[in-house]
Design a protein around this nucleic acid. Structure first.
Length: 190
DNA sequence: CTATAGATAATCT
DNA sequence: GATTATCTATAGG
């Protein structure tokens, strides 16, 4: 079991988004395996950072390896990892986990029984892990966060991002191929 | 299985 | 005032 350091995130955001699949993410010991991510680049009309720094997105312009947490649709927190090579403004939305640690705690927070939809969506996983604005702009190599490197190569699926109205053609969604814990399946091929 | 409405509030124009 | 990197319940095929 190898800890992931902040240097992991000091690379191109598309590379990091792909490499995050299979990484274990824990918040206060609760969490699981990353099975779905989306990259948001600074020069990307779909990104919050597209129009430059604001009070909300300022943590995306900070150092790599830190969190960016924001409220979506007035009720769901979304967790992002900041990743860039010194220029700032890019991040990765964590869209789904395969639950492995603290299943009972996650089920209690979510108010549901089965494991299938505990963390299968960006709003769902933040509720399961207890992530809110209180975890914004925090480093990922220190508590309450704990990241472990993946232990084997995994089949990666790629496709267009979900829920956006700009730059819908960019294939910047990455996932663990065939995982039952994805927020939505990937199309076979186009 | 797909489609759609409604909830609900920060953020930005 | 409009938009939004979502989720859930419900209705229909």
């Amino acid at each position: 079991m190898t800890r992931i350091g902040l240097e992991f995130f000091a690379r191109d955001v598309l590379v990091v988004a792909r490499d995050l699949i299979g990484v274990t993410v824990l918040v206060d010991g609760v969490g699981g395996l990353v099975v779905e991510t989306e990259a948001y680049h600074r020069e990307d009309p779909a990104s919050h950072a597209f129009r430059g720094p604001t009070a909300r997105n300022i943590s995306m312009f900070g150092p790599p390896g830190h969190t960016y947490v924001y409220l979506s649709y007035g009720m769901h927190w979304c967790l992002n990892f900041v990743a860039h090579r010194g220029d700032g403004g890019s991040g990765i939305l964590i869209r789904a986990l395969e639950p492995t640690h603290g299943l009972g705690e996650m089920a209690r927070r979510r108010g549901i029984a089965g494991p299938r939809s505990l963390c299968s969506g960006p709003g769902r996983l933040t509720q399961a892990l207890g992530v809110t604005r209180a975890q914004n702009a925090l480093p990922l190599d220190a508590p309450p966060f704990e990241l472990h490197a993946r232990e084997a190569d995994l089949p990666i699926a790629v496709g267009p991002r979900i829920g956006i109205s700009q730059a819908q053609d960019r294939p910047w969604r990455f996932g663990l191929a065939g995982s039952p814990y994805l927020s939505k399946p990937f199309s076979p091929r186009t």
